[in-house]
């Protein structure tokens, strides 16, 4: 919590701080309101704005501690890879479901993440869970560890491939949303550095040698 919101400050001061930091939430609620009413009109927009500000006044959620910045190119790249993963994995899981006589052998894989904070951990988890074939069954936020269930370990390429895949997703999330400081802290150089390129090439190749040394130090776990 920033110093601007001391717990003992009056309701009015906290309200003004909330309006400064959470006006986008009210804007989003207004958009939802207008879409639900099914048409843009002065009355809809005004009523939606009123409802939005009323909601963040009386039923406010805690502010997200976000210090990063959105990079449009990296965000588009994240979105593109996500759509590709979603399409490929949906078709794969569908055919696995329709392959009678074949039984998937699931697995729970421990994926230690970079130490970057709750927001990026959450975004990575949500995107992982949306892609078929992988579900987060546990997320331990203090150690930053995800436990990922894969539908079939063999068709996912083994535990190391799963870890590698999630780490790449996390890198794309960080490059899209994190600040330069957070990127440096996570051990990622600026976009287009040799490290990033080498990993991207490896990612494109798709197959990861399980015996090869791990890409990130965090992966070196027994």
């Amino acid at each position: 919590m920033s110093p601007a919101t001391p717990q003992d400050a009056g309701w009015w001061a906290r309200w003004r701080h909330r309006m400064r930091t959470q006006w986008h939430a009210a804007l989003w609620l207004m958009v939802v309101w207008v879409l639900l009413w099914g048409g843009v009109s002065v009355a809809n927009v005004l009523a939606g704005t009123l409802v939005g500000f009323l909601l963040i006044s009386v039923m406010a959620l805690p502010s997200i501690d976000y210090r990063g910045r959105v990079r449009p190119v990296a965000a588009l790249r994240l979105l593109g890879f996500f759509v590709r993963d979603l399409l490929v994995a949906s078709v794969q899981v569908s055919f696995q479901a329709l392959r009678f006589g074949w039984t998937p052998h699931g697995a729970v894989v421990r994926v230690p993440m970079r130490d970057t904070g709750d927001l990026y951990l959450t975004v990575t988890s949500v995107l992982t869970s949306l892609v078929p074939g992988t579900v987060i069954v546990e997320a331990h936020r203090i150690t930053g560890t995800l436990y990922v269930h894969v539908l079939d370990l063999e068709s996912s390429g083994g535990a190391d491939a799963v870890r590698h895949h999630i780490h790449e997703l996390e890198e794309r999330v960080l490059r899209a949303l994190a600040s330069d400081d957070e990127l440096a802290h996570a051990g990622l150089g600026p976009q287009g550095t040799a490290v990033a390129d080498a990993r991207a090439v490896e990612a494109m190749a798709g197959d990861v040698d399980p015996g090869a040394p791990s890409v990130t130090p965090e992966e070196d776990r027994p």
């Binding site: 949906s90 899981v93 569908s94 479901a97 329709l98 998937p104 699931g106 078929p132 539908l151």
Partner: peptide, 30 residues
């Protein structure tokens, strides 16, 4: 087709987590 496959998967996969994959995933894109 994707929603049908999800339904078949729910009926066919052996354990809770496998069924959950089928129930939640192809359905999203579907």
């Amino acid at each position: 087709f994707l929603v049908l496959a999800a339904g078949v998967g729910v009926a066919r996969f052996p354990d809770l987590l496998g069924r959950m994959h089928a129930a939640t995933k192809p359905q999203v894109l579907g």
